[in-house]
Design a binder for these strands. Sequence first.
DNA 1: GTCATCATATGGTCTGACCATTTAAAAAAT
DNA 2: ATTTTTTAAATGGTCAGACCATATGATGAC
Lengths: 241, 241
Amino acid sequence: MSAGMLKAVEKKRAYEDIVEQIRTLIEEGRLKRGDQLPTERELGETLKVSRATVREAIRTLESMKLVQSRQGNGTYVLSSSEEALVQPLAAALFHEKDDILDISFIRKIIEPYVASLAAENTTLEEINEMEAVLKQQADQITGGGNSTVTNIDFHTLLARMAKNRVLARLLLALFDLLEQTREQYLQNEEWAKKSLKGHEAVFAAIKKGDCAAARRAMLRHLEQVEEISVGKKRKGGGKCR
Amino acid sequence: MSAGMLKAVEKKRAYEDIVEQIRTLIEEGRLKRGDQLPTERELGETLKVSRATVREAIRTLESMKLVQSRQGNGTYVLSSSEEALVQPLAAALFHEKDDILDISFIRKIIEPYVASLAAENTTLEEINEMEAVLKQQADQITGGGNSTVTNIDFHTLLARMAKNRVLARLLLALFDLLEQTREQYLQNEEWAKKSLKGHEAVFAAIKKGDCAAARRAMLRHLEQVEEISVGKKRKGGGKCR
DNA sequence: GTCATCATATGGTCTGACCATTTAAAAAAT
DNA sequence: ATTTTTTAAATGGTCAGACCATATGATGAC
């Protein structure tokens, strides 16, 4: 056995235990966004700890953006189970000074590889799921509905197909940051149609297991979408892409 | 750290004010890695708040990986000003269940692109810096010293050369996570020599402004290093790289 | 000098109180 | 009956002081 297999023994402090319990409840979906936590006094009584200890746990959860305390009101769950994984990452990645184009650029590096990995590692079941997602997206366009939701579904499922959880989280965080600032653009029909075309091209390559084609298709898709969203004001445009 | 660097609290939630003050001191470099904070009792007295409030602030700072409290000993600054930006990101990326190879794989996607970007965007001044770093690394090998530090310097400087701050932070976070679990391996001479060779190859390409070559050299370097560090047990090994 | 012991300092937790704010029920005014 | 005002309860925010658990260095025995 190598020393690398071992992890430092952590003596658990009481508040860390509480953080872990509540965090798990959120990640498992047993506490949903908007749910109110028991009061600090109740939690202390239930968990057999003092209110001070409960509060230290809540401070930690609050700094993770998982809950929020409001004086005179209560403490509420901020994030859904999926967001609970992505939110801290997005917050850590994005500092207000950063150009949003930096993030867009990173996504153009990563997501084509994710598409490639997906072509390599996805399962039949996921392929069926993807077909359903794309069909739904097509229906929404003809029906005039908002395709923002299925757009997210596509990229989320793609990340899952790649079978690299860290990469999936990273990508979803980047995606989340970009969508937040672009939501305004995502409603018009031109965008929706081009987006669907792009998704279908990527999926076709994945279905065939052609990773190189999947990568190319995804890059093309991202560049098209970016062009619509941010226009010509792209950064760099250097010779090295 | 002297008490004179702090001032009494004034804002809404007292502990947030304290977090902000200490965080700023760390980011400005007035509190360095390893420095001990005043005791909780002293902080309370200085800031005119109770010890409970001080502790809530410390819990927040601790969850940001900026400080660490050790019972019976004290509370210490964990991160330098640079790491203060990277640490929360690393914490958000890494959940214990994740395979470290996932992270290694992501790095192999990103860092070659960073090398490519560096070749495209770096300045003469940074090239001179890099020459100094590599010379230092060479000296350490002949002198038998520990080259871990200059190894970090190389990748940090490279990230800066790429002129994409988000990407730089992301890469450093990945790097940090990998080094933490591998530090044991990084001492032997074979590794040190191969690492230096790899760095020099990447730098040569960057100096010429040849982004494609820089990318290839970096990928080769990472694969060599990985081979030494984790042996043959690489994940996937699929056809799509 | 070496080792065991102990005192001290420091973080970890507990108790109980009071303050500040929000909410909604109760009371008053219309 | 409706609206407005007042009041009381609930809840988070802060405080004070105490005791527990652990790490470290000083003390003393050998």
